[in-house]
Simulated scan of single mutants.
Amino acid sequence: MLMEECMRECMRKLALWNTRNFKPVMAHDELEPIMATLGFVPLPLPPSADWREYYYCGSAAVAAPAPDQPPPSPRLPYPRIDGLHLHTYSAFLDALNFHLCRPDISDIFHIRGMPLHKVHDRSKKWRRIEEDDSVFVYREGTLDQAACAHYQKNKNENSSGIKRNNSMLIRSKGNNMPKALVVPLTDIIGR
């Protein structure tokens, strides 16, 4: 029992952080005002919704990634958005970046690890993110399978020498952290 408690103390979850005020965004009610300033509105939730999608109402017209595919919609599990898999956050940020056409989205959002909350997170089922012997975990049921397949395909293509053609979401520094997680301090406090 002591070993299990020690392991839980070492585990960390990922969270979406508002880079401008350096605060984690834990739920959609905190995310929606930020999204509104970027030109996104939440789509109505269907009954028993597990995910919330956002629609881009901004002025920039962008072409769909392929003629037979609609543009990507930023979406995250509902209602809590902390403790998700890295691929889920990456898909969300890639969809935002697609519509906003920004060279670096980390001045708005970044992904960062944080300790599990002793009371709130105790009752959740957690799965380990299986990359680089990470101590990061994600809530069971919050991994979008389409995003997982997409990023696994890109990872395999990168390892076979094919260059990935999307913007760098977040710069990586630090040991034992999933790639593309940590923003340099100069990006957080301004230049």
Rank of each mutant, 00 (worst) to 15 (best):
I34E: 00
T37P: 03
L38K: 00
L38A: 02
L38D: 00
F40Y: 07
V41C: 07
V41H: 09
L43K: 10
P44W: 00
P44F: 00
L45Q: 00
L45T: 01
P47I: 05
P47Y: 06
P47A: 08
A49E: 01
R52S: 05
Y54S: 01
Y55D: 10
Y55G: 00
Y55S: 11
G58D: 07
S59H: 12
S59I: 10
A61K: 14
A61W: 08
V62I: 12
A63I: 08
A63R: 13
A64Q: 09
A64K: 10
P65K: 02
P65C: 02
P65V: 01
P65T: 03
P65L: 05
A66L: 12
P67G: 09
D68V: 07
Q69E: 13
P72W: 02
P72R: 00
R75S: 15
L76S: 04
Y78L: 08
P79Y: 02
G83D: 02
L84C: 09
L84I: 04
L84D: 00
H85Q: 02
H85A: 04
H85V: 03
H87C: 13
T88S: 11
T88P: 01
T88M: 02
T88E: 01
Y89R: 03
A91F: 05
F92W: 08
D94C: 11
D94Y: 06
L96H: 00
F98G: 01
H99E: 02
H99W: 06
L100A: 03
L100V: 04
R102Y: 06
D104H: 12
D104P: 01
D104W: 07
I105F: 02
D107K: 14
F109Y: 05
F109S: 03
H110M: 05
G113T: 10
M114S: 09
M114Y: 01
M114F: 03
P115Q: 09
P115T: 08
H117I: 13
K118Y: 10
V119T: 15
V119E: 15
V119D: 15
V119M: 15
H120R: 15
H120S: 14
D121S: 05
S123F: 08
R127P: 01
R128Y: 08
R128N: 13
R128H: 11
E130W: 06
E131A: 13
E131I: 11
E131W: 06
E131S: 14
D132C: 11
D133P: 03
D133Q: 15
S134F: 09
V135Y: 09
V135L: 15
V135N: 14
V135C: 14
F136I: 10
R139P: 04
R139E: 14
E140A: 13
T142E: 02
L143R: 10
L143C: 12
Q145P: 07
Q145S: 11
A146C: 10
A146M: 09
A146L: 09
A147R: 00
C148G: 09
C148I: 05
C148P: 05
A149K: 13
A149T: 12
H150Y: 15
Y151H: 12
Y151I: 10
K153P: 03
K153E: 05
K153D: 06
N154P: 00
K155P: 02
N156F: 08
N156E: 15
N156Y: 08
